[in-house]
Structure formats: C-alpha cells, structure tokens
Amino acid sequence: MSAVVEQPERDLLEVLVSMDLQLASLERLLTRLSASGTIGSYPEAGFARTAMVAAALALRPDDMLFGTARDVPAALAHGVPMEEILAQALGKGGDPGRGRGMPGAITNQRHGVSLTDGNIASHTVHASGFGQAAQIRGDGRVACALLGSGALANGEIHAAFNFAAIADARTIFIVRGEVADGIELEGTGEAWGLPIDVVRGDDGQAVYAAVRAARERAVAGEGPTLIDARLPEHPEPLDWQAHQARGGWSAEHHQGVLREIEAGLREARAAVEAGEDIRAASLFEDVFEDRPWFLAPNRGHEVNS
C-alpha cells in the first residue's frame, strides 16, 4: 500500500480527503500502541495533517522533505510506503533507518525524507543548506522544512532564515499546527528578507497552492519562502461530506473507502510484524563507513541477541 493517488492535480480535494482518512486510521493505531507501551512515544499530527499532506503533495518526488517526527503524514504523501512507516514505528527490519529513531523519526533516502526527534528546529538549517546547494547546482530540486509554532522561538530558526535568504536557497519553510506562544509571523519577513505567505492550515487546497507558488519561486532562483500555514482558532476538519456536496463521492463510497483503508492497514501491519527483527549486531554498524577496531567483533561489544 503506498500513497493514495499519484496525480494530485486530478482531484486534490479527493486526494486530501482519502489521505486524511488513511492517516487518521494510522494515527489511531500508533497512538494506541504508544499508550500501551508497545512502541515509544508517537507525536500525533491531528488537524495539522491537512497542511502536512498538502505541502508534500505540492513537491516534486525528488525534492527533499525535512521535518520532525510529527510530520509522518507528509512522509506518506511524499511517497514513503505505509509498510515502511509502520516498520519504522514498530522497530522492525523493514525500516530503512534500521530501527534507530523513535516512532515517526523517519529517514528514507529513496523518497527524500528526513524527520527528526532531535532539536525542534535544527532541521530547518539543514533544509537551508540543502536549498543553497540546490541553488548552486540548479537542478530543479528544492528543500521543504515543516516546523511547528514552538520552533519559532528556537535560535536555529534565525540561522535558517538568515542563511536561506542571503543565499537565495531553494527552500520552503512551512509553519504548521497550532499557533503557540502568541507568535505571529506577519511583518517579520522583511527582517529576514523572506516573503511570507499566510494561509489557513486547515485549507489543504490553499496550502497546496502556496507551496506550488513557493516552489516555482525557488526554482526560478528567487529565493526561499516562509508559509504560515498554522491552524485558525477553530479549525475545520477535512470533511468528506463537503467533498460529497461538490459531486465527489457518495456515503456508500465513503464507507467502502473506510473499509479499504482499515483492511489495508491491518494487512500492512501484519506483513511488517511478520518481517525480520532488527539484528542485534547492527548496533555497531553505520557509526562510520567502515567499522574501526574499537567496534570490531570481539572487542567487548558483544550484545545479547
């Protein structure tokens, strides 16, 4: 099972609704497993799912997506298969990151995704550097960094915005989630030399359009954009009924989609759980390109399997 639709332009609202249903199901599962102690802490995205998914859908597949462990919905929308997301969260062998990150801290080179459970804003500086490299090389790729309101208070943000602006980095910064600490962004862009686009975070189509425009700007060498896609005080959930009212799908179809999603998730989970465990010996791998003498077998580093 992979991202729901390959061509979001065909009917963006339908894609957004479908993915939201799928992700709601996934988040319920992971939250349940987290609460039961089966997996580590999983940070739910909640209403921010809409902006995360819309942003990722607006990117090109070879663009690089940076975010935090809360941005799993964006990873799915950027192409990371559901099986790999589940394997990561469950710490199973199918995780390309080999079980090294907490649930949600997905690294997936094949799909250009790096989500962190580290410092809340360090990844924004990496996105700036990636975008600066893309500007130097001019190959059409961009970097996108998703961040929460709380990250705006972190000093890394100043470094990221400052470096990106002066380098015309091909980077899109997207603030998603709730407005925290009363931090407003309007009017601050001038200080950093960043244009700011403010959209409702619960309006997937508006977020998608803003990211598309920012992407075009970036690729044209016109520099980074900051998109404030935070949620209004009373966010509106993505409503399949609104989609229905626009001639989308019927109630019957909706129930069918739900059944398909639940079945798909059960199937994916079963496949992941039946897969290989992370090998104990892998503890000592990937520290360096080659294993130095102090990590070699028989150096007092044996572990229980």
Binding site: M64, S114, S122, V125, H126, A127, S128, G129, F130, G131, Q132, A133, A134, I136, R137, R141, A143, G155, E156, H158, A159, A160, N162, F163, I166, A167
Partner: peptide, 22 residues
Amino acid sequence: IDTPLNEAGIIGSAIGMALYGL
C-alpha cells in the same frame, strides 16, 4: 562562500549541503 557570523548556521548548512550530495 562567505557566511554570516553564525556557527550553528555554518555547520547546519554544511550538513544540508552534504545531504544534497556536496
């Protein structure tokens, strides 16, 4: 590249550049 006087920015940017392939 001449950078702003910000060591976190310098090293963080370098990491991003390396992830790009530089």
